[in-house]
Structure formats: C-alpha cells, structure tokens
C-alpha cells in the first residue's frame, strides 16, 4: 500500500527564507519527525491563510503534503505563539539563539522528542523572565545531553579517577572534565573552577524551573557561558551566529564604565 500523501505534525518554527514570488521556505523542528524543511505556498501574501502562522518561535499544528522534492504546508494552526517573549528584544534574541542551535543539532528524518520538549520548556521559562541567562545555560547543557554528547562531570575522562572537589580542567574534545594529573595535548583544554563544576552538576540534576532560579556572580556566569557556548560551538563545528547579537545586547546593557 502506498504511504499516505499527507500528514500532521506538531512543530516549532525555527526560521524561514523567501522563495520565489510569494512563497516561504520554512525550517521547523517537529516532535515526531525531527527537522523538516517545507514550502509555504503564497505565504508572503497579505491575504494568505498561512500568514502569521509561520513566524519563528511559534508552535504550530501543521498539515503537510508530501512534495516531489520538498513537502508543502497545506494548513497551519498556532498552538502557542510565545507573544510575550516576542514583545521583548532580549526575549527574541535569546529565542533565536535557541532556534539556531536546534537547527544545527536537529537532523532531518531523525526525531528527537526530548530536544523538541527542551526547546518548548526553555522558551516557556524565558517568556516568564527574559532577563535571566540561566535558561540558556540549562538549554545548552541539556542540548548536549539529548544529543548524546553529555560531558563527563564526575570522573576524569582520561584516568577515570573520581573527581575530588577541587578546580579541574575541561575539554569538549576529550568529552568532559580532566583531573590535574592528566595532561593530554589538547588545544581545547581550559581551566574549570570548582564553582563552575558544581553548577554544571546542578544543571545535570535539576529541572529547568529550579536551575533558572539560580543566581551567580558575573565571573562565574561568564565562565559558564564561555564553557558551554564553546562546547556547543565545538560540536556544531561552526560559530553560532546569533551569539554575537546576544553579546552585543549584553554589552549595550552594561554601564559605560564596563564597556
């Protein structure tokens, strides 16, 4: 029996690009099919029934038709628009950062419901507090986990000795934390403070709601941000472009003396 020509899927829109006269090429991450690229026919026309339903960071129930080279969006219904998040510049920039990471880590025809749920949960928490960076750190850490790239935090990745409560070193290249005795030649090796290790372990054990309430000083926040975004970028194999806009907004928000 021939496979059905249409299907429905719940998805979150990651991005789109204009195509031809009035179409959109939409990239979305679906709960059941992984990353999907599909065409919204006529979606750029003001009177299109798809208009407004295909904006990035929107959860949409899609009806799709199998196309010859790419699927066609036949209907779209917004399930969650995250409108408060989109009403704030920091919220938008953080949301688009998540979208870029999901686009990079998500694969076509390779469903990962945990990654889908992680994105929805993170956007939900971000919507309630767009100023906090902790939801981003939680997302980066668990993005590695649901992608099978979870860094080792409890034993040295070289000698397998249990890590003492002390400062250590970290490298995404070797898969996590190293004790001070092991010295592999590794350009990605970096120091890891005890405080940062504790926060990473907390991220491992906590849910997003609890992790997002964590407050920390600027130096620890900066160490974690650098470590996690470098690790994510390492596995992605390229620079995360939306990161530079996030950095720009952060710098703009600092008092003049810190710029």
């Amino acid at each position: 029996m021939a496979p059905p020509r249409t299907y429905r899927c719940e998805s979150i829109i990651l991005s789109y690009t204009p195509l031809d006269e009035a179409d959109l090429l939409v990239t979305m991450y679906t709960r059941d099919r992984g990353k999907v690229r599909a065409i919204g026919k006529g979606a750029r026309r003001a009177t299109s029934k798809l208009m407004g339903h295909l904006e990035p960071l929107t959860v949409v129930q899609m009806s799709m038709a199998n196309g010859r080279s790419m699927d066609i969006i036949s209907q779209a219904e917004v399930l969650q628009s995250f409108s408060e998040l989109k009403g704030d510049l920091d919220g938008i920039s953080k949301g688009l950062y998540l979208a870029e990471l999901v686009d990079g880590f998500g694969a076509e025809d390779s469903p990962n419901p945990n990654l889908y749920q992680l994105m929805i949960d993170t956007l939900t928490v971000l919507q309630a507090d767009t100023e906090s960076d902790m939801p981003l750190r939680f997302f980066e850490f668990h993005l590695l986990q649901v992608s099978g790239l979870m860094p080792e935090l409890y034993h040295c990745v070289e000698c397998r000795i249990e890590l003492e409560p002390d400062a250590h070193r970290f490298s995404p290249n070797v898969g996590g934390t190293l004790c001070l005795e092991c010295n592999p030649e590794d350009a990605h090796l970096r120091p890891l403070s005890l405080r940062a290790l504790k926060v990473l372990r907390l991220l491992d054990r906590s849910g997003i709601a609890a992790a997002s309430k964590l407050t920390m000083d600027d130096s620890l926040a900066s160490e974690l941000k650098s470590l996690l975004s470098t690790t994510v970028s390492y596995w992605l194999g390229k620079e995360i472009r939306s990161n530079s806009f996030l950095e720009r907004l952060h710098k703009d928000s600092l008092p003049e003396v810190y710029k």
Binding site: A46, T47, K49, M51, G52, H53, E55, V78, S81, S83, K86, L89, D252
Partner: peptide, 30 residues
Amino acid sequence: RHQGRTDLRITHLARGLPVGGSLEYTDETT
C-alpha cells in the same frame, strides 16, 4: 532602545486584519 531622544514620538504602523483577509484563518497575535 538605542535612539537617544526622550522627546521623540515613536510610532509603528497599525497591526490587524488585511483587506480581503479572513477571521477564520487569522493567527491569534494578529
């Protein structure tokens, strides 16, 4: 956020339904 005036009136175009559009298919934000 980045313009420097405090006495400047800043507006944007109205948001809403397009002429010839349909309520049934309109997204919730619009």
